[in-house]
């Protein structure tokens, strides 16, 4: 790996920007994601910032099972993100579909629509688990 790409990779790991997208979740995982970003848990100390647009984001944080309405939008948002991009599935629903598996309007987990880099199970995933998942994803990038 060249020096330039080393520096780029280092910078990427130090300040990953998140985009949070609710793909049909019950809000539980969403409030836990926000809780992870606020003072008690403070995910921002890893240089992480929540962004409003997919074009600025490195990591897409998805919560909830993929509903049929949201599927096209999810793929579109994923395609708008610049490379390299990573997806984190927060909560049991977004990992596998959870309790909503088999519902007529629910496809399954996030990986039924887009590739997922990290799975964080839990109903809802606690802020501690979310931090753990994000840190594990970032440290896996270090090795690349």
């Amino acid at each position: 790996m060249s020096t330039v790409s080393n520096i780029v990779n280092w910078a990427r790991i130090k300040s990953p920007w998140l985009l949070h997208f609710n793909t049909g979740a019950c809000n539980a995982c969403d409030i836990e994601i926000i809780a992870a970003l606020t003072p008690r848990y403070d995910l921002e100390r890893f240089g992480i910032q929540l962004k409003g647009t997919p074009r600025h984001a490195d990591i897409l944080v998805c919560s909830g099972p993929v509903t049929r309405q949201i599927e096209d939008r999810l793929v579109r948002i994923y395609e708008q993100m610049p490379e390299p991009k990573f997806v984190i599935a927060v909560g049991t629903c977004s990992c596998t579909g959870g309790v909503f598996k088999g519902c007529y309007n629910v496809k399954a987990g996030i990986d039924s629509a887009i590739p997922v880099a990290a799975y964080i199970p839990g109903c809802p995933a606690s802020p501690k688990a979310i931090i753990d998942g994000v840190v594990k994803l970032l440290s896996s990038l270090k090795e690349k």
């Binding site: 019950c26 809000n27 969403d30 909830g64 519902c103 309007n105």
Partner: peptide
């Protein structure tokens, strides 16, 4: 966009299972 079909899913589960399912209607006022 968030429609998951909970009401229909309730009909396919027992009353006791439904208690936990309706809790997942909304995570804030579960």
């Amino acid at each position: 966009y968030n429609h998951r079909g909970i009401e229909k899913a309730c009909e396919e589960r027992t009353f006791l299972q439904d208690v936990y399912l309706v809790e997942r209607v909304c995570g804030i006022c579960s």
